[in-house]
Each structure stands twice: as structure tokens, then as C-alpha cells.
Design a protein around this nucleic acid. Structure first.
Lengths: 204, 204
DNA sequence: CTGTAAAATGACCGAACAGTCATTTTATGG
DNA sequence: CCATAAAATGACTGTTCGGTCATTTTACAG
């Protein structure tokens, strides 16, 4: 029973936690951390506030769970997508494509993610845990870029800032799409981004 | 006296308003809108809370003033710098350079600016005024890019998303520098950015 | 020096809200 | 069907803080 060291209670409990998280993401996405209230989350989940506090110990804990759990999923999918692709050009293309698609499918999460990682100097990001997660993410892309530079697949530049830049370029496009400022199809935005990163703006 | 339709009181009043704004920027930069308190701003300015409220009618008004006044300055300088440069390559270089330098010289403001424009879906940015300012900014760069495309100075791409992207690429580097994550000199970061936008990452 | 208006003050008010806990409801297993 | 424990509830508490305003201080004109 080592595999299932979980009682029936544990399983139910885990399910409730997940339910609350899903609802919380919607509320936090719509209002931001400060303007969302725990009462609101409870109501949206159809339970009483006290019940929320028997699954999470604080508002912040709920928020961090919503952020970090979603992030872990995105991170895992990102790695798979990049490892499946071969060659740096394809890897970068896969990276962008996955994230554009993920944002389409997980709008609430992506709002929280951008609110947090878009503003690392305030908010939950002052939390060391969150900054660490952010850095870890960048370091993975950085290592991929470093390999590509070593293999002569791309021009030699500093891979660290480049990794951050690529994240932020994707974020930029996602923000535009989220706000309805992009008239392009996802495909168009994907190609635009991929192409810009690869070729820049210089005339051919 | 049309030029100086200002009484002595008006001038003093304007000076006090500016004093409060300067202090407010420091406090908002350090704590963010929600965690900063009006009492704190007042204390830092060496005045009582009530006095603050005789110059501004709300906390939000102070914040917006700090943001928009700083933005107007940055906007004006950005235009001058770009108009002085000739050719799109030089214009873009000037754009990046100016903003890197401005961030160095106005750290508090830039934190507020990034906190707000980095997270357009929550916070003050839900405010239509702020979004409009942001869009206006992008449209100027967009028009410059459009001209360059028409003149064949750069490859033909959609100038709208490109304008946003360039803003966000600069922001990305500024964030890294603000957090002390960049080991590069300003000059290095400037060249990296300028070069990436112009040439992409493809091997020569 | 004095009277008056403007400016500054900070105690105070009320609303919002995170978090608690005594009470009630539900589930379980004998 | 009952006894008991677990889960859910929501009224309540304490605190924080934006904004107000009666009172005090300062500035200044005559």
C-alpha cells in the first residue's frame, strides 16, 4: 500500500482542494490578488468561507497553489514539446506554439501567471519561491540556447538575457491576444514571433 | 499676464503637489499600489495625512498622477530621441538607448510604470485612461515602423504587434537589470537588444 | 500688533475583509 | 436506528486603512 498511502478521505480532500483551486483561478484572474475576496471564492465554489479555510490556511496559500500548480503543468508540457523537436529552430517554434495554445486553453491561469511574472518586483513575486520558479524556467531555455550556440546553430550571444527575452516576447504576444488587440490568427502570431526571433527585422 | 495666470498660491501649491508626487513614487515603487498607505506617503513627505488630501483627492489619484506625469516625460524624450536619429536602424537604437538610460535615472518611476503596463489586465490599467496612454505609445512606434516598411528599410511584417514586441523586449531587459539579474553593462545590453531586433538569432 | 483667511493637523469614522470558532449538518459503521 | 466523529457553516472579531473634519497653526495684510 506504499503506492496508495491515501485513504478515502485523502482522495476526497484532494478533490475538494482541486475544485477550490479551479474556482479561485477564475476569481483571481478576474480581479487580481488584492481585489479578490475569500468570501467570493467560497461563494463561487458553492461552499462557506470556513470550509475554504479547512483546505487552505490562507488566501495567499490559495493563490500560490493556483499559480505554482498551473506553472508546473505548463513547465512540464513545455519541456516535452521542446524535447520532441530537433534542432534549435524547431525547438523555439515548438516553444512558442505550445505557449500560444496553452494560453488559449487556460486563460484564467495565464492571467495570474502574467500578473505575477509580469511584475516581479511586487506582489507574490517578492516571495523567494516564486522568483526561484521563474529563474528555473529561464535557465532551462538558457541551457537549450547554450547548446545551440555551441553547436553553431545560432549566432553567439549571451544566452541568459536571450532566454528572458524570448519568454517576454511570447508574453507580449499573449497579452495582446488576451486583450483582444491582436487581429491575427494564432498561426500568424506564431509565425511572426518565430520569424522575428530567428531573422530580426533587417531586410533580407 | 496670460502666460502667468498663476498666483503665488498656485505656484506654491504646484510645488507641494510635485513634492508629494516624488515621495509617492518612492513609496509606490517599494510597496506597490495596494501595500503602500497614504499615511506612509504623508510621513515620508513630512506632512500630515490630511494635508495630502488637500492636494489630491484620493490615493488612486496620486498614483495615476505619479504614473502619467512620469510617462508624459518619458514619452516626450522618446520622441525627441527618435526624431533626432535618421534611418530606422538608428531610430530603434536611439529608442532602446534612451529607455535604458531613463530607467537608470528614474528607478522609482520605472518600477511603477512596469508594474502597471506589465499587467494591463488588473490594477489601474483596467482604467481606460491608462490603457489609452499605453496604446498611444505603441501607435507612435508603429507609425515609425510602418514608414520604414514602406521605404523598404525593414522587412515587411505587421507593424502593430511588432511595436508592442519592441516595447516588451526593452521592458524585459530593464526588468532583468532592475532585479540585478543582468551581468552586462548597459552598453552590452543595448547592443544585444538592438542586434537581436535587427538580426534575430539565425547564423550569419 | 492684530484680525482674518488659508493651510496643516491628526483624532476619528466607517467599511472592507482575512481569519476564527461555537454550533449545526452530514457521513459512517456498528 | 443510534452514536460518534468529521465536515461544513456563517456570525463574529480584530485590524487595517482610506477618507473626513473640527481644531490648531501659520501667513499675511492693514
Amino acid at each position: 500500500m506504499a503506492l496508495a498511502g491515501k485513504t478515502k478521505q485523502d482522495i476526497v480532500s484532494e478533490f475538494r482542494r482541486a475544485e477550490i483551486l479551479a474556482v479561485a483561478r477564475t476569481v483571481f484572474a478576474a480581479k487580481g490578488f488584492n481585489d479578490a475576496t475569500v468570501d467570493e471564492i467560497a461563494q463561487a465554489a458553492g461552499i462557506a468561507k470556513g470550509t475554504v479555510y479547512s483546505y487552505y490556511t490562507s488566501k495567499r496559500e490559495i493563490y500560490l497553489a493556483a499559480l505554482l500548480e498551473g506553472h508546473a503543468d505548463l513547465r512540464a508540457r513545455t519541456r516535452v514539446a521542446m524535447e520532441e523537436a530537433s534542432g534549435i529552430h524547431a525547438k523555439l517554434h515548438a516553444f512558442i506554439k505550445l505557449r500560444l495554445q496553452y494560453a488559449e486553453d487556460n486563460r484564467d491561469f495565464i492571467r495570474i501567471y502574467h500578473a505575477e511574472f509580469g511584475n516581479l518586483t511586487n506582489g507574490a513575486a517578492s516571495d523567494g519561491q516564486v522568483q526561484e520558479v521563474y529563474l528555473e524556467q529561464a535557465r532551462y531555455l538558457e541551457s537549450v540556447l547554450r547548446d545551440a550556440i555551441a553547436a553553431g546553430e545560432i549566432r553567439a550571444t549571451h544566452p541568459e538575457p536571450l532566454a528572458f527575452l524570448i519568454y517576454d516576447m511570447v508574453r507580449s504576444v499573449l497579452t495582446q491576444r488576451t486583450l483582444g488587440w491582436s487581429k491575427n490568427t494564432m498561426e500568424d502570431d506564431l509565425n511572426l514571433l518565430s520569424n522575428l526571433i530567428w531573422n530580426g527585422v533587417a531586410p533580407r
